[in-house]
Amino acid sequence: MREPHRSEPHGARGRAPAARGLKIRGLQVRYGEFVVVQDVSLTVAPGEIVALLGPNGAGKTTTLRAVHGIIPPVDGEITYEGRALHGMPTHERVALGLGLVPEGRELFPGMTVEENLELGHVPGRGPALADSLADVYRLFPLLRERRRQQAGTLSGGEQQMLAIGRALMAAPTLLMLDEPSLGLAPRIVDLLYDTLRLLGERGLALLIVEQYVHEALALAARGYVLESGRIVLHGPSAQLREHPNLQQTYLSV
C-alpha cells in the first residue's frame, strides 16, 4: 500500500496553493553518525489533522524537532506557509504559527500554572494576553482552578493540558503534539482527544505523533507510518485502520 498521495488538499486557496501549510521533502536528520530520519516527506494542509505513527525509535520525535528548529536537518526541505524554514531559529517559527507540545512536556516546574501560560504568549501575535488566557481556561477549566499552583505539583494529565494550553497561548496555526497520551489513564486520554477534536473543528491544523494508533486515527484525516526513519505507509485514516496487520507489521506495539 505505497500508493502516492498527490491530490492537493481541499482547504488550499489563493494563487499558490502548493505553498500553504507544512511541507517536508526528503528530510534527513542525524545524531552524530547515527541517521535517525532517512527520508521523510509529508504535508499538512491548513486546518488538516494528520497522524504520524510508528514504533519507538522510528524518528517521529526527531521529525517534529526538525520542523520546530530544535535540531538542524542534514538534508531536505521544510516549508511552512511558503517560507523555507532552513536555519530559522525556533522563536521565529513560533512567530510564523508553528507550535510544539514536546515529549516530556518541558514545563517550568517552579512557576505557577498561570506563569507557564503567560510565557507561552508571544507579545504582538494573536489575541491579547488576557483574552488568550481566558480562552485556554475555557478549554481547560481545571487549569483555571489550579492557576496559582506550581506546575511541578500537577498530575500527569494536568501537566499535559498545561503543555497544550501553553502552546495554544502563542496562537499557532499548526500544532504538533508528541505522544500526548503517553503515560495517561484512558479516561484522561479520551478527554484530551475531545479537546483536540474541538481545536480541529476551530480550524487549527494538528500533526499528532502517537505510538497508540486508535485515538490518533479516529481523529486524523490522514496518517503516515514511519519505520526506521522512512515513511513506509501513507493514506487516509480509514484505509490505514483497515490495513491488515497494521499493528503487528509496522507498529509492534
Binding site: 530544535i70 525556533t90 513560533v94 514536546p102 510565557l119 502552546a167
Partner: peptide
C-alpha cells in the same frame, strides 16, 4: 516583568523555553 519571567523560565528549563519560542 515579562523579561524577568523569561529569565526564570530559561533558568528552570532551557528546552521548554526554546520550544515555546523564547529567544
Amino acid at each position: 516583568t515579562r523579561i524577568g519571567k523569561e529569565a526564570r523560565a530559561v533558568a528552570q528549563n532551557l528546552a521548554g523555553a526554546l520550544v515555546i519560542g523564547l529567544n
